[in-house]
Every structure is written in structure tokens, then in C-alpha cells.
Design a protein around this nucleic acid. Sequence first.
DNA 1: TTTGCATACTTCAATCTTAAAATATTTGCC
DNA 2: GGCAAATATTTTAAGATTGAAGTATGCAAA
Lengths: 160, 160
Amino acid sequence: MSEQVELNRSTEESKARLRLWLRLLGVTRKIENELRDKLRRDHNTTLPRFDVMSALNRHRDGLRMSELSGVLKVSNGNVTGIVDRLAEEGLVERVPVPGDRRAMMARLTPRGQDVFAGQAAEHEAWIDALFADMGADEAQGFAVRLKELAEALETREDKE
Amino acid sequence: MSEQVELNRSTEESKARLRLWLRLLGVTRKIENELRDKLRRDHNTTLPRFDVMSALNRHRDGLRMSELSGVLKVSNGNVTGIVDRLAEEGLVERVPVPGDRRAMMARLTPRGQDVFAGQAAEHEAWIDALFADMGADEAQGFAVRLKELAEALETREDKE
DNA sequence: TTTGCATACTTCAATCTTAAAATATTTGCC
DNA sequence: GGCAAATATTTTAAGATTGAAGTATGCAAA
């Protein structure tokens, strides 16, 4: 009978976690959709392009293609295509890595930095408005907890 | 000077919200990638296919194509393609809506229900493991707060 | 009842995305 | 030095995704 109780508790717990996951996914998609619309409307760009430029903006010396895909949590081939298109427009450039001819650094061009600066300022204001419901303290607490969760995920043995 | 203080406070607040958003996005992508791998490895399917079947499973009478895209927060054209592929495999079927010849209901076939049941059981266990860091109470509190945020987002005037 | 706008869905072109194969280079081992 | 395995990136094919255009049907006002 205590096992029955345990089973019920466990099932309830897993249901709670599942609901949390579905909420997380729903909120994230909703916000992504809003940002996508605004980026297209106001800056004639896309979310993946913004993400790439944002990552490169945080790393002024540039990032290797593989580091870029790692940061963005997308595949290698994916960033190849996005960087190709940004490079065609002169917003990003590929720079060879001294000492390793296999590798390539991607980095913002001066024009890319200018263009991104305008996008980023608005982006921050959009986020600010979308999360208006949440004060700074709560947002920070939330972020800290999510960071712990992320670390737990990284640490996890991927045996399953 | 008090305006300077206000500006600083406001900027700090918006930075905290931005960090929260980046964490939310990062955790969501990480988990999506894990689920994608597992679905492919163990069930030879994809995340969008699972999402469609999951939505249809929660609505046994079926959903109109437009309801389906609304629930999943993706475009109409997108679900058309995914339902096409699921229908080819006999997992989903399209049913005309009596009284409105423009509309179509998508619903799981009996085989689709069987196949999905197997996927869903494992999916719940995966989520349970991924969120092992978080107890049921915390997960529920988190979910409640996200729901409030989602409602605030829905209510927001989209004037910007 | 006809005409025009709205609705539901599909199609289309472009971009994004993944997983796997291919290419080029580096590194370790003998 | 030379070869095998590992690493960094690109290419490829299939699927996913969007936004806009196209098609068919419904609805409502004149």
C-alpha cells in the first residue's frame, strides 16, 4: 500500500513537471513569435539572424563556427547557412584562424556592429515590455533558478 | 539626479529581464534538443510530429487545422505539411466538418492513438528526469507564475 | 440574389534546421 | 616521417517554418 502511495506521488510529481515543461514551451514560443514579428517589421531581419549577430556582438573578437553553433544550441550546418547570408550582406565576415587552417572565426563587420546596435536597443525594450509583469527581483530569482536547472541538465549523464 | 537614478534602476531592471529571457530560451532549446534526440532514437519521429499528435491526443474529437496551428503557435501552412506526412503514414486523418466545407478536422487514427501512447509514456518519463532538479511544489509554483505571464502576454495590447 | 468581404485551408518561395556524408586539416602513435 | 583517428567546417537531402498569394466556401448587406 505504501508503494501505491509512492506511485501516486511520483505520478503527480511527473505530471507537475510535464505541465511546467508545456508552459515553458508555450511562453517561449509566444515571445519568440512576438520578437520575430517585430524584427521583421522594424528591422527587416529574422530571429536566427538576430541571434547570430547577438552572439557575435557579445564576443567582439569573433567566435569559431563551432563555438557559435554551441552557444546558439543549433547544428553546425545551420550556422554555416546563416553566416553565409549575413556575410553576403556585409554584416559578418569570416576570418581564418592562425595556426588551424580548418577553423574559421565569424565576427561582426563595423557595419554589422552598427546595424546590430540599433536592433539590440529595440530588442531590449521589447523584452522589457513583454516581461513587464515581472519585477527585477523576481526576474532575477527566476533566472538564477533556471541557471541552476541548466547546470543540472549539463551535468546529467546522458545514458538514457 | 533623481532622474539619473531612475534611469539606472530602469536599465538594471531591463537587463534582469533580458537575462531571464536568454535563460528561458537557453533552457528550452537544451530540453528540446534532448527530446528531439530521444524521439528520433527511440521512436523514429520528430518533435513537430510529436507535438501535433500530442495536441490531437488531448482533443479526441479532433481539431480544425486552424485550431491546431493556434494551439501549437505555428503557422497554418506549417501544420498542413506535418499533417500531410502523418496522414500518409496512417497516424492522422482529415475529416470534413459538417456544415462548413472550407474546414477540416484532423484527428488521430486508432493506430495513431496506439503509436502516440507509447511515445507519450516515455516522453513523460524523460521530462521527469530532465526536471529531476525540481520538486513537485516548485514545479507547480513555476508553472503557475508562467501561466500568469502567458495571460499578461495575451492581454497586452499589441500596439507597438 | 448578387456582390463583396471574410474565413479556412493549401500552395508557394525563401529561409531555417537537422542528421549524415564529404572535405580538409590536425594530432597522436608507431 | 607516415598513417589512423580526431576535429572543424561545409555540403547535401529531407523536413520544418514563415509570410504571402491562391482557392474555395461562407456570410451579410444592398
